[in-house]
Write a protein that binds this DNA or RNA. Sequence first.
DNA 1: TGTACATCAGTGAACGCGCGTTCACTGATGTAC
DNA 2: TGTACATCAGTGAACGCGCGTTCACTGATGTAC
Lengths: 207, 207
Amino acid sequence: MKPEAVLVESKPYHHGDLRRALLRAAIDVLEREGSSALSLRAVAREAGVSPAAPYHHFKDKSELLGAVAAEGFERLRVAIAAALDAARGQDVRSAMGLAYVEFARANPALYRVMWESARNSEGVPNDGRDIGDPFEFVRDSLREATQGRLSELDIQLTAIASWCAAHGLAEISTFIQFAPLKEAMGGEQAFLKAVLDHMGFVTRHDG
Amino acid sequence: MKPEAVLVESKPYHHGDLRRALLRAAIDVLEREGSSALSLRAVAREAGVSPAAPYHHFKDKSELLGAVAAEGFERLRVAIAAALDAARGQDVRSAMGLAYVEFARANPALYRVMWESARNSEGVPNDGRDIGDPFEFVRDSLREATQGRLSELDIQLTAIASWCAAHGLAEISTFIQFAPLKEAMGGEQAFLKAVLDHMGFVTRHDG
DNA sequence: TGTACATCAGTGAACGCGCGTTCACTGATGTAC
DNA sequence: TGTACATCAGTGAACGCGCGTTCACTGATGTAC
């Protein structure tokens, strides 16, 4: 039986927006304790709810994970769009690449879940909502930025290559063994730029 | 590589080389059932031994995982060295890159374990044996191949960039959504080469 | 060469744990009349 | 406007499971004498 709370602190029986709260809780757990700690029970615990509650919003654990990944992709798409907007047409690929890497570095565990999820399904998890696939987003931006100077195939391949480079850079820059080199180069950003530079990230096609 | 004892038909009480057998069993489980199935008990089961037996060879599960990763790195180093040998001085970076990607594609679950292990420690797990760090191996090969045409910093950064590109390519090429594109381009190899090409994998420094 | 014995490398049962999931339930909410 | 009632969204206890690890044990092996 619930206390008849006259004061503000009473917790309502119905949450109101538990689905969203669970996604937020999942991402919190993920970044705080790593992906091995991401259990359904841990998410429920984090959201302050019983272990059975999530089942009113997700069919099972894998559906929750898919939704977490979809949420991550949505955030990534927003981040890339913002960076693209700030770069205003100049150095489009580099701006998108750096935004991608920064997102992955800022949300490493979420990024891994997103990657796993995309790998294990066809493309990016959709969650039923109308989210944009970041890969398609990058490819379309690239097409727009190069305005007919690249063939459709070249656009496709360049988008894939850019994605490879960004993913590789995002993951490799987590290695602790590069710390001295980073410091010697004047920080993370300088390090990332230097590596991108040595990869020929901006390809010869629009040198 | 050490010559192996002859396998006898009867199962002796003492295994003879259980340590090595456990590593082999672990890699088998990994590639057959994926990394989520890689438990100490599953490895023991696969090796036909009781769940407690591994504790005579590894302190705990994480030590087993480290040894598995080390074994993987040793195999990778051998594969890269072989490819380098076959390429005989021409197109060194591309040969190493392709060998790397092929290894990762052929042993995806093992590759993930290796990557996780390298990320979570300083550099590559050593396992007490004298194995070569593949990154150092690549860097040294690069230094040798470019013979003074690159500064030490450029060599370092180029090696990192190459590693990024190879890792990204290895992981991205697992995506099922690229299957039609691969087919249109005439197979996996052609696809990989085309993406590498669009990345400017061979950098401007010795293009 | 035979033997006592320490050491090595297995066994199999047991432990406590957190997990995903199910279940009967109940409190809260929305709606038809 | 008030009320009956279906539906929604929680609870909390319980389940079976596989896990990592420990334990007392025992069979096999190597060595000193």
